[in-house]
Design a protein around this nucleic acid. Structure first.
Lengths: 296, 296
DNA sequence: TCTTATGCATCAAATGGCCTTATGTATGGT
DNA sequence: ACCATACATAAGGCCATTTGATGCATAAGA
């Protein structure tokens, strides 16, 4: 069993420290933002607890008694240490930003842009961890999460980043191999990457192309868009991807998006964090940065 | 201007310290004598102020976050220092007993008995200061006062020690020089010490002895009983004294009290101290001792 | 000496921080 | 599957704390 430390009334000792430092009830009251009456009361409380007067009440000034003189320096020191630890903790809490994200978003979107955030916030260390499951902020030391879903998580603030739209993409050379992809049905003449992905069925339905038995077609389920995207870039087949994740490939021609038709299944990628921490400076810094990036 | 230290909410940080030490809200609550709900509340308050979680809530146990880990040791240390200073102050407050008394009481009563008090309380240092004026406890560092008066001082507890009775005393040899002092009027045949003292007039009146022009008789006003007592012991005259102050002289025959007639003027010697400090251990120790001495 | 200003003490009244009770949620052990 | 453990949450009450007004003593100034 641990013996509990005998402690003075904390409010009172805090007031005492200020009074001892100023040598005046009134000035201490000003510093502490309270009335002189309250200071007088607290000192009396502390004197009762200590069992001895701490100040001598002289006409226009007070003086520490011997007991007070011995108490004051140690108290001041203790409060200085408390204050320093507290300030450091607040500061330290701001120093590292831990982001938990899913692999696709990290590699296809975040990785290329995170540098600009770090340049804008050189004092913030960013730790990026990719995890498959949705992080539980209450039991893991994570500041910010990026997840796909419906955007409705209790207790979490969520900002929609990008919609999980999808549309077929392929390499230009693969398209040329069949003389170009002119209409949706042309795609069926090419190998589909991960044909069992429900996105394919949805997209062909939206394109008015009857496409039966997709899941029976040969192909590998790769699971993450980054891998399918790489395979598509390499000309191994047609992938159904989220354009926002492949803006660079589309821009420089490594991939082409043959049709404007976008589908989505009401999923999106979200920036999430505990509502209670909305005003944390590092969180709002990241929020502001990422929303700005998306707007650009 | 002094910059005020940024401090965490003290109640909350106090709770945090206990929780960090125990690694448990519930155990901390037990130590602090409050409910687990209150602990939970305080930790939340502190986390809001710090701007970051301090604990990770794992299923059946909690763990300090990085911020918490950095905060905890410094906080524990600060509280230990506070506690030590506080305990020392309380102890130190008990270590020295300052008595402010008038000279007569000190030399005629206290001096001979104080030793037994110090033997009974070897850890208490006694500082005896004799001052003519009534000490003001609020502006001088004094624990106990001994004064004469009516016993009615606002804010002060007062215990009647001895009545300021008075009756004539003289040395046996002086009495023998006129063939013994048989009746009050015999005294007028001897020199009176300090004949102007109003006590003489009162006593002679009570003794039914007409005694006019006392103040015109030769004699020195010595002011303090101790001096008059010495003069009387030396056979220089008759003094009017308080018997309680000369018990030793009366016992061993250096002085005799020829008549039982005692007078008093409603004055007494009192033990006084601030009412608010009634329960201070050193004060109650002294009070108990001196009242016991008087009873014996 | 009289007046004014300063600084702490005291009192009654209002406030709100803090605590408790009761209950919910999640999880590990049996 | 059920019970025990441990933390979170909600509602309500109490008391410590604060305030505002006033008193008192004293030092400074006229």
């Amino acid at each position: 069993m641990h013996k509990t430390l005998p402690l003075p009334p904390l409010t009172a000792i805090r007031v005492f420290e200020a009074v001892a430092r100023h040598g005046s009830f009134t000035k201490a009251a000003t510093e502490l933002g309270m009335t002189q009456a309250a200071v007088s009361y607290q000192i009396k409380v502390l004197e009762d607890r200590v069992g001895a007067p701490l100040f001598l009440r002289r006409p226009r000034q007070i003086a520490l008694t011997e007991v007070g003189q011995r108490l004051a320096p140690a108290v001041t020191q203790a409060f200085e240490q408390l204050s320093e630890a507290y300030v450091t903790a607040r500061g330290g809490a701001q120093g590292t930003l831990v982001i938990s994200t899913i692999a696709t978003f990290a590699s296809n979107w975040l990785a290329r842009r995170l540098g600009s955030f770090q340049i804008a916030h050189p004092s913030l260390a960013v730790r990026l961890q990719t995890e498959p499951h949705l992080v539980d902020f209450s039991r893991e030391e994570v500041d910010i999460g990026i997840r796909s879903g419906g955007g409705d998580w209790p207790g979490l603030a969520a900002h929609r980043l990008i919609n999980a739209d999808f549309t077929p993409m392929l390499s230009p050379s693969l398209a040329a191999s069949i003389g170009g992809v002119k209409e949706p049905a042309d795609l069926l003449r090419l190998p589909l990457l991960d044909p069992g992905d429900p996105w394919w069925a949805k997209w062909f339905m939206a394109a008015n192309v009857p496409a039966e038995g997709l899941s029976s077609r040969p192909g590998a389920s790769m699971g993450a868009q980054v891998y399918e995207g790489n395979a598509a870039t390499a000309g191994q087949g047609v992938a159904i991807l989220t354009p926002a994740f492949f803006a660079a490939e589309l821009a420089d021609g490594r991939l082409v998006q043959p049709f404007d038709l976008l589908c989505n299944d009401d999923q999106a990628y979200w920036l999430v964090y505990p509502e209670t921490r909305r005003n944390s400076s590092k969180i709002s810094a990241f929020r502001q940065w990422i929303l700005g990036e998306l707007a650009a």
